[in-house]
Simulated assay, not measured.
Amino acid sequence: MDTYTLLRHFADSWALAAMTAFYVGAILWVFRPGSRKSHDEAATLPFRYDSTPMAPGATETTDQSPKGKA
Score class of each variant (00 low, 15 high):
Arg36Lys: 11
Met54Gly: 00
Tyr4His: 06
Thr20Met: 08
Thr5Leu: 14
Leu45Gly: 10
Asp63Glu: 11
Leu7Pro: 02
His39Arg: 05
Ser13Val: 11
Gln64Val: 13
Leu6Met: 09
Asp12Val: 09
Leu7Cys: 14
Met54Cys: 03
Phe10Ser: 12
Ala15Glu: 13
Pro56Val: 09
Leu16Tyr: 03
Arg32Ser: 11
Tyr4Glu: 14
Gly34Gln: 12
Asp2Ala: 10
Ala17Ile: 08
Glu41Val: 09
Gly25Asn: 05
Arg32Gln: 15
Phe47Gln: 05
Ser35Lys: 08
Ala42Leu: 13
Val24Tyr: 02
Ala55Arg: 01
His9Ile: 00
Pro53Met: 02
Ala17Cys: 08
Asp63Arg: 04
Lys37Ile: 14
Ser13Lys: 04
Asp50Gln: 02
Phe22Trp: 09
Ala18Glu: 10
Pro46Arg: 06
Asp63Tyr: 05
Ala58Ser: 14
Phe10Thr: 06
Arg48Gly: 02
Ser38Trp: 06
His39Pro: 00
Pro56Ile: 02
Trp29Asn: 09
Ile27Gln: 11
Gly57Cys: 12
Ser65Thr: 06
Leu6Thr: 07
Ala55Lys: 01
Phe47Pro: 04
Lys69Gln: 12
Met1Lys: 08
Thr59Leu: 07
Glu60His: 05
Ser38Leu: 09
Val24Trp: 07
Ala26Cys: 14
Ala21Gln: 07
Tyr49Ser: 04
Glu41Met: 03
Gly25Val: 00
Arg48His: 01
Pro33Trp: 12
Pro53Arg: 00
Asp12Arg: 01
Ile27Cys: 03
Ala11Lys: 14
Ser65Ala: 10
Lys37Ser: 14
Lys67Asn: 00
Phe47Ile: 13
Leu45Tyr: 09
